[in-house]
Design a protein around this nucleic acid. Sequence first.
DNA 1: CTGAAAGCGCTAACAA
DNA 2: TTGTTAGCGCTTTCAG
Lengths: 332, 332
Amino acid sequence: MQKVNAKKVAELAGVSRSAVSRSFSGNGRVSAETRAKVFAASEQLGYRPNGLASSLARQTSDIVALINGDAPDFREVFFVQNLSRALFNAGMTPLMLSVRNDDSGAETLSQFLRFPLLTAVVSADSIEARHVIPHCPYAPPIMLNENYSRDDEVDAVRLDEVKGIGEMVAHLESTGRKTLWFIAGRQTTSAYSSRKMALLEALARSDLRLLDSEVGDFFYDSGTAAFERLYQRGPLPDAIFCANDLMAMGVMDTARFKYGLRVPEDLYVVGFDDIPQSSWPTYALPSIQQRDADIINAILEILTERKEGAGDQRLSKMVPTRFVPRTKAEFA
Amino acid sequence: MQKVNAKKVAELAGVSRSAVSRSFSGNGRVSAETRAKVFAASEQLGYRPNGLASSLARQTSDIVALINGDAPDFREVFFVQNLSRALFNAGMTPLMLSVRNDDSGAETLSQFLRFPLLTAVVSADSIEARHVIPHCPYAPPIMLNENYSRDDEVDAVRLDEVKGIGEMVAHLESTGRKTLWFIAGRQTTSAYSSRKMALLEALARSDLRLLDSEVGDFFYDSGTAAFERLYQRGPLPDAIFCANDLMAMGVMDTARFKYGLRVPEDLYVVGFDDIPQSSWPTYALPSIQQRDADIINAILEILTERKEGAGDQRLSKMVPTRFVPRTKAEFA
DNA sequence: CTGAAAGCGCTAACAA
DNA sequence: TTGTTAGCGCTTTCAG
């Protein structure tokens, strides 16, 4: 353990332990003089308040768990990195957990999650809210992208997929495309239903026709496999929309390398997420963008509102998406 | 706070608080009967020991900080995810922190890192060991890939870059290549010097000639930029080696799309890391593989040895790399 | 094997 | 503004 504690600092500074505590916490009034003595002594001893004891005494926690599934997709991994950094810089302690989306995941969580949490940020499809709630005594967990669940016990950040997907469909129409394939994500995910529904809604208002569709699992290989199946059933449409960029890349590579199709001339491929690779010239993949920064801001806003005491009210934020009609290599 | 504590459980179970503690911790003897009563009562109340209080009382910590820089590269992001999962499953609490590699990073760390750590796993080039050591009262931090620093206060996991790079050079020779360009990573990183040194060493033993070299920053764009500069200076070599895959991909895309070169026919491009994208047919990038699983195992071994009491001894593990001579699209 | 009691380091009334 | 005091929830001697 840290051998240096507030008591030693207090002795060296010639003040009481509470003075030390007050100097660091900012709560309660301390004279500038006392404060200076405390900091000098702390510096000398290398003292830093022990968060364990502090949290315990304050009956609160700064720990925010970031919970995602055990097969996080490409953008999720980066998102967690970014979110964790943002939380840390906002003075919280980000705890990163990957759990399986089943009972064993819930088991793991309750077995190893020893610390009371300020809150948890839970990725859609990683684990059910009811397993997380008991660990969050101070504020409800924040669910991400659970677009079609209506849990009243949680706060939520949702993605406005209708907007971006609508923009894409409009773009396809305005560029004279008539027919479409769709490759959905894992069927058990909430992104599956919400993206599919948003697409169907947009198509219903357009002249585009959905010729066929398939299901993947958000990974590259599933994009190639789904495309194979669609291709066997033919005929080729004007465009294909994939529920994320990674599958779209699998589709592009198969279309180009295995079947010699020109993308986007013979087949216009669209993804979702707009990961950095999508702007690389090899792919130059049109995509529907969701910005990590927007989502992170929404989360921070919820945390702030909770800190200010939102009471029993459920907080919910909506983050926009937008279509990025990237069509040719950026070299030229 | 959790309203349910050991005291309530004890009352319900009709035993003492120490009995509850013992039942959960496994330390100290408890009769099967008492234990059963305790667990029954805990179940009923939804009790789980509070890690904050437990850690405080035990004078130890299960928290392992994973510290990386604020511009983590592609594979690092995935590595952190994987490591975090492995630690969690091993019963530790992974705390993920990104700090800048400068004084402000050290400042941030000491300002916000409130919890005593069991240890920290520190990526090369994220922050200096001396800033982390004060936070690790129980075991020295574990430094990753600080191949050329000789800090006696830390444990270390190093990468045997000589092996994989040697294999690559041998492969180039055996396939009749004579000349080479090299794009290094950020000059301030330890990977910069260690990879460059490994390359020079391998070249010294071969007939390959290093025609020219450039410096990037491990990101895609820096690969394209470095290639541009090399290309201006010409003439083209038989092969180009990049200090990571991402830069190699930038090189490939530029070579193909801007200069119409055939890869690998006109120019053989090699990367380092073997990220998943490298096996995609678009790139089919030969690369030098470092396996996350190997590194994670090394870390867990160090943790185990420390737990068993390694004393003042400094622990160090070496993880191998190997060349993956991927040369053509896997579709065919 | 069990319970009582003394901490772990810090915070938050409260009284001075 | 300060110091004193009583906890926060758990672990761990130490008697019994």
